[in-house]
């Protein structure tokens, strides 16, 4: 992805900014200015909670150019409570420590880690829920 696109979507990459149709409640991530479902232009900004659940995951052994530090990293399909699914890298976790159904939370990390001369691109990844929030989740479940 090119630099202008990362920049345009920085609120999406940094804090999971989405949009929701006021008319039919369809939710879009990244945000859209009009609703694909009902055609309404009345969409509201929505900041996703950053909590989610792993639906499926895989290990990446052939990373894309610019992601060479990602050999063997985990990429997951994550279901969000807002009714969306998104694909994201998992971080701070070994393959043996994660399974489908697991609660994860969004963190901001370096997405491209090997560009000595270029812009550092930051964005969302997910990891197992840390500490007190993990306990809180367990209590409310």
């Amino acid at each position: 992805m090119e630099l202008p696109r990362y920049h345009r979507l920085r609120s999406t990459f940094y804090r999971l900014q989405a949009s929701r149709c006021a008319a039919c409640q369809a939710t879009y991530f990244p945000p859209r200015p009009y609703c694909l479902h009902c055609g309404s232009r009345n969409l509201e900004e929505l900041r996703l909670s950053g909590r989610g659940r792993v639906l499926s995951l895989t290990r990446v052994y052939q990373p894309s150019r610019g992601f060479s530090d990602g050999v063997g990293t985990l990429t997951a399909l994550i279901e969000l409570p807002e009714g969306l699914r998104l694909i994201a890298q998992l971080t701070d976790v070994e393959p043996a420590e994660v399974e489908t159904g697991q609660e994860v939370e969004m963190v901001v990390r370096r997405l491209r880690t090997d560009e000595e001369q270029g812009l550092i691109v930051y964005g969302y990844k997910f990891r197992p829920v840390v500490g007190a929030r993990a306990a809180e989740g367990a209590n409310s479940a």
Partner: peptide, 13 residues
């Protein structure tokens, strides 16, 4: 720090 962490990401958290 992890391979995808730096001062900015750590400050954010």
């Amino acid at each position: 720090p992890g391979p995808d962490e730096d001062t900015a990401t750590m400050c954010i958290e």
